[in-house]
């Protein structure tokens, strides 16, 4: 019978010193994995991380492009009303689902961060490869938004409160609400005013105008249409708060969708299929 100490010694040396609790137990020791199995499980971790980052980076990027792609893509679409509203509502979906899967199955409070990080990396790769190398657009025309601030807050809420409902209410709201301030810090220089042909424009408008996109006439931009005009310049905070509100429900919905989509189900083979395959069906029926 292998002792706990032996298992500890065989597993990662770091395990021995750092993650042992008062009773001398570690995750590896309690899991019951043999030293060899523990090594393979570490390899499995590496492969899963690589796969998740690649697949979800692509999937979330595609999802965001298809739903709110124009706002994410172009600097002259990032207005004060719709950009702070629609972007977090779309960007919360996959991170919430990943949060659910990682937490419920593994108690890992990293799902949202993984999603937002993979998205940002994939987005910048896209900007570089597609928009710079392929079509020659300047990077300033396609500065993306990031959802990392909100994703981090969502994960922190989960680890502190350990409850999906409260994570939706507080973390989900935070995701929607902090999108605007966290991205404004990065993009503020693009709203400096310039005078062009006798009219005022922001630098973002000038960039979009100067480097033409033939497929995108100016009137396609949805710039502050609607009835939030009574709030004047505070329209962004109203949008941010409303985004937070919607994100609460989005988070709950996608948390559940994430759990539903990550179930493992087995289907029994029917007798007809079995006989085609040459498998004799079980005698007792």
């Amino acid at each position: 019978m292998t002792s706990t100490a032996d298992i500890d010694a065989a597993a990662s040396p770091r395990e021995n010193t750092r993650f042992k609790d008062k009773k001398g137990e570690t995750v590896i020791s309690v899991s019951g994995l043999t030293p060899g199995a523990a090594r393979y499980s570490r390899l499995f971790d590496v492969l899963v991380v690589a796969a998740v980052v690649t697949i979800f980076g692509g999937a979330i990027h595609l999802h965001v492009m298809l739903t709110v792609g124009d706002w994410d893509m172009y600097v002259d679409w990032k207005d004060r009303q719709y950009w702070p509203l629609v972007m977090p509502v779309s960007m919360i979906m996959f991170p919430a689902a990943l949060q659910a899967i990682f937490w419920v199955n593994f108690r890992l409070p990293i799902g949202a961060t993984v999603g937002a990080t993979a998205l940002l990396i994939a987005t910048w790769i896209g900007r570089y490869a597609n928009w710079w190398i392929w079509t020659g657009f300047p990077f300033t025309e396609g500065v993306p938004s990031q959802a990392l601030a909100g994703a981090l807050l969502m994960d922190m809420t989960l680890i502190v409160l350990r409850n999906s409902l409260f994570t939706s209410i507080i973390g989900g709201f935070a995701f929607g609400f902090v999108f605007w301030p966290s991205n404004y810090s990065a993009l503020a220089p693009f709203y400096l005013p310039v005078e062009h042909q006798g009219m005022v424009a922001s630098l973002a408008d000038m960039i979009g105008y100067t480097f033409p996109r033939s497929n995108m006439p100016e009137y396609l931009r949805i710039i502050e249409r609607g009835t939030l005009r009574t709030f004047g310049s505070s329209v962004s905070w109203v949008s941010a708060a409303f985004a937070g509100f919607i994100c609460i429900f989005m988070h709950q919905l996608w948390w559940r969708l994430g759990l539903f989509a990550s179930q493992a189900t087995f289907l029994k083979n029917s007798d007809v299929v079995k006989s085609f395959m040459g498998i004799k069906s079980s005698v007792a029926s």
């Binding site: 395990e15 995750v27 019951g32 994995l33 971790d45 990293i110 990080t117």
Partner: peptide, 17 residues
Amino acid sequence: WLSFWLARPLILPRWLV
């Protein structure tokens, strides 16, 4: 934040525990 978690055993051990 991610390294804080990825440095430790990740998938199977945590699931078993």
